[in-house]
Design a protein around this nucleic acid. Structure first.
Lengths: 211, 211, 211, 211
DNA sequence: GATGAATGAGCATTCATTCAT
DNA sequence: GATGAATGAATGCTCATTCAT
């Protein structure tokens, strides 16, 4: 189980990773349109031309970043939901806090923000992201709500709308985190406090009426 | 009896409105960076140069759009809050539904979305918007929460965090509306249903514990 | 010998003067190409359109400035040369120092500098200036040299070349005065010292050999 | 046996020279502000974009032209002055005639003229040129005068002023050569005759009084 | 006469993409 | 495979001049 490849060949295999790493950094920092491929190449230590050997254009590079960074997180969450068997409120809280740790706190969250910001100027990206991320993520939240309602742990809510209600603050948190403007006089967002406040309210509001 | 169209028409008084109208349309449709001033001018029926007679550059044009479209709405809301004297939950609901009618449902909402998306690439705009809109809007929500707590109509919450919790879904709704990606399989968001679901949950969660 | 015209009518007569005053200021400060007619009009207290009532375009305005400011000085010098009857060296010194007082020390000198700088981009102006100023001025210097040679007060020099030799430092002084670059480490040119040094050397060099 | 011309040719090493060559031609012909970079590129046989691969902007291109064309001449002159050991009058004559051959007679002289003309509109260029050319050139002339005075070969003159007196006609000659206006009725300047006349007079005037 | 709103050609600079080496 | 030189369309902004009022 050794790695007998010579140095430069290992490097060749590593190229896509290095490029994706540079790409995510810059996309997150500047957005899709404002990121220059020359900067991506330079940061990855290769030439502009090389970048085009691996990704046919800017959009394909971006898609690769999404596949690399976000899609796997969703897969893992789907699995953990299927395996969980406690109270649905706990499940919801766990999944959402986990998502915050894996996505919200990492630079990956910048990709989500960027998509919200720029997707309308790049329809191809919008379509891709919708299919690969949004739809699957939404279905995941909905399934937890349905589980809670079915098990009598949640009120009888409008699942479609409540799904969006639950997603919205998480996405907004991300947006604020990456956006130069935010609704707080203080210099820093306090995401954890925000999440606590939100989940507290939300789970409180989802509980079925006491008999 | 000829009526040859003059090369141009002198419309000094109407021009700013025409230009702002064209500008808001295009800014909302394409974002700040992607909007070409030549297109704004053409849509307003004037030449590129004319636009510069009224606004010194792209950023000033954008600021004028904000002053024209968003700032007044905030002013009105501030007034109506001061005059209200019923239950704070009703006040909150009223103000937020009203904001949705005035901003969310109009193209003005596109400006808010655009700012979240692009502010970090245009620090000057970020600063302007933060001061003119975000800070004032945030203070407005907070004051309603404080009123509710003071009058014993709300639980004793963390006002700062809860303010953000309340703002988040509204902003997210706007973002989705303008974003080409959104967490719904259906073709259309249902903002009204979303708002109902959210306010329902939020006001439910804010109520003080029954004695 | 009163001036019975009403206020606004006197003003109308004064317009050309006001415009020329503003024009010379700005041409001297920024050069021909870089001067904006809008600024000239504003400084003269009129509208852009008005300027075009008096001067058909930028070049004509400039010509008027030259006619107003430089041409008369040459006329006066020609007269005073004809009337002088002392030693030609004294005449030369007198005329050149006088020219420095009338032109070099006033903003008029900026026009000469500007012409040297920009004439090649505006052939029409070059032609005009050559005819109205350069040729006449040159002839004037030459005539003094010829007078000196004829009267045995100067060596038997190449008049054409010496004319240029005498003109050159005066023009250069003007150029430096208006030029942002100059061959002195000190902050200020000392035109008077420069002139003294030059005339000293020149008149010394023009004297006929002592028998 | 076809020989279709490629869309472009890769000439990295030659490009800077080609671009500088085109740049100096056009700067000299039209001045700094009036030279369009697109024309420079076209004359060098490349596209606009290529120019920016080598020079970050118009000012840097201009600085490169100066470094390429004028600065070396000054360096050489400084060396030859240090090595000379005859009469200071001969040194002065030699250096100035040499400068005329190397700068005055070539298109390089156009750059000096251009600077005098436009420096005040481009402060950055003025500063650069002052430091790289004017100051060094001035120091060079002064040092020759000081040498002459110290060795008793020149009168005891005001070196600072005389330095300017000597520089002035040389610069003026250049200005006239490139200026579309000049104090001669004939179509052509006769720089050589002018220089002879001037140096004759100047060196004559610098000699110490005969005992 | 006066005004100033309107025009539109003009220019420096950027950057995704191509392709000869 | 890798390089990076070259391309050229795109865009914000300026200003002399025109002309309806």
């Amino acid at each position: 189980m050794q790695c007998s490849k010579p140095r430069w060949e290992r490097r060749k295999d590593a190229r896509p990773q290095e490029l994706l790493g540079a790409a995510i950094d810059l996309f997150v920092e500047r957005g899709f349109a404002a990121t220059r491929l020359e900067d991506v190449a330079r940061q990855a230590g290769v030439s502009k031309g090389t970048l085009y050997l691996y990704y046919t254009n800017k959009e394909e590079l971006f898609k690769a970043v999404v596949r690399e960074s976000i899609v796997p997180v969703i897969g893992e969450a789907e699995v953990s939901i299927n395996e969980f068997d406690g109270h649905s409120g706990d499940l919801l809280r766990t999944v959402m806090l986990n998502w915050w740790r894996r996505v919200g706190q990492s630079k990956v969250s910048g990709i989500s923000k960027l998509i919200m910001a720029e997707a309308s100027n790049f329809p191809e990206l919008a379509k891709f992201y919708q299919e690969e991320v949004i739809t699957r993520g939404t279905r995941m939240i909905s399934s937890m709500l349905e589980r809670g309602v079915a098990r009598g742990e949640f009120r009888d809510i409008d699942v479609t709308q409540m799904t969006q209600v639950l997603i919205a603050p998480m996405m907004m948190l991300i947006t604020w985190k990456h956006s130069a403007v935010a609704p707080c006089d203080c210099a820093e967002l306090q995401p954890q406090a925000f999440l606590d406040a939100f989940l507290d309210m939300a789970l409180h509001g989802l509980l079925p009426p006491k008999r």
